[in-house]
Simulated scan of single mutants.
Amino acid sequence: MATRRGFIGSASGISTAALLGYSASPSAADSPLTDTASAAAASVTQQQAKDSIFAVNAGMRSNYATLKAELVKHLSPVIVVQNDAKGGRFTLVTASGQESVNPVAETFELAKSIAHVPLGCFSVIASYLADKIPNLPNADRIDPHDLLLVAFNDDKSTAWIEPLQAYAATLTTARRNLPAAGLPAALTTSCGNILDAALKFINASVQAKVFDMKSFEDFSGSVYPDIRVNMEHAAQAQIKGVQDTMKTWRAKVGEAAWADLYCVVLSQWTTSVLNQNTIIIKDCMNAAKVATHLIDLPGLETPKDPIFTALDNLARIVQDNIAAEMVFPKDTKVADALKGKEDLLSDEILIQLGGSGAATTQSAPTYNTLSEGMCPVRK
């Protein structure tokens, strides 16, 4: 759904009007139209009149983009987090420059790699599933239409055997080399259990040349306790790595600057609620400002320039925070909408569609933070 933030373009101040296909007219006099002006106005076509009105918005966009581009240069301190397979890449932006680190130990990625084995198997066989839901404990939670969309191949086909055997070869190599990886004993055991169970499922399915949702869920359900062990080790590694980095950067920028720190976490939509890095970071920030200064920025794909994307969006948010109170000084509810995620027309649209009236402004998320805003997380 188009929102105010998505509607405002990112074209430069010079090129915005040209990009939209029209140019702004010279400024008109501030006084009401005179007879001469009225006569001149009557000579323009309807399209020319519309274009002159469109140009007003083009001018706004141009001015807005210019302010934002300049504001980006002054954002400091900011931490930008790019969620990735390694636990996240963190970049500290200050007036003196930028520095980036991947603070999470390899245990995080290794533990998650093996925990993803059932999903890896599923991704190979899913399109060959029968499109009828069998008698499973969670059958009522499976949408029949969604299953039909996923199971788009012939369930009598055996085309899944070759790719599943190829994945099994990868699992076999990992299982053989697992003892040499130097993982903690409990993690080595859980990884071994997951790999063994997956290979058993694959071998049985290939030999029988058939599988179903029940046989797969028997396998995936059997390794769930081991997946939890892997999740525990991954979480421990991530918490320690992120907290240590936040402590280091807090000491570097100083307490006064840290109190006004902005954190922008770039994530995919599927992980944008209770994002793992957001949960850890919030308790390392100023508790009084975390609700407004910790920003989850979900997207569909990783942007080509993550740092610029984060700072560009943060500049929009910061300047809108100030604009909201000055453009709408007589309506704090509309001001809150400009400062937040609502479209400014949402309230009026709800009223006209026969809703209950005024829309409820959703405030920025709040978190259970330490009153002193200290890091690390207190148990």
Rank of each mutant, 00 (worst) to 15 (best):
L294P: 05
T270R: 08
K209P: 03
T270F: 12
V318N: 00
V56H: 02
A257F: 01
V229N: 05
I53R: 11
F90E: 05
A29C: 13
G6I: 09
L171E: 08
L187H: 05
F54E: 11
V56T: 07
Y22T: 08
K240G: 02
W160Q: 01
K214N: 07
G241C: 06
D312R: 10
M246L: 15
A323V: 10
S222M: 13
V334G: 00
L199C: 03
A41Y: 09
G254Y: 11
T172H: 02
D154K: 12
I53Y: 11
C121E: 07
V242I: 14
Q276Y: 13
L75W: 04
P329M: 06
P303M: 01
L370G: 15
S15I: 02
P137V: 08
T94N: 07
P179T: 13
S371Y: 06
L344G: 02
M60A: 09
L353W: 01
V327S: 03
T16K: 02
K304A: 13
I14T: 13
S346H: 14
K379Y: 09
R5D: 12
H233E: 07
I202F: 00
P118V: 05
K112F: 08
A18L: 12
L129Q: 08
D320K: 09
L261R: 05
A166Y: 04
E232C: 04
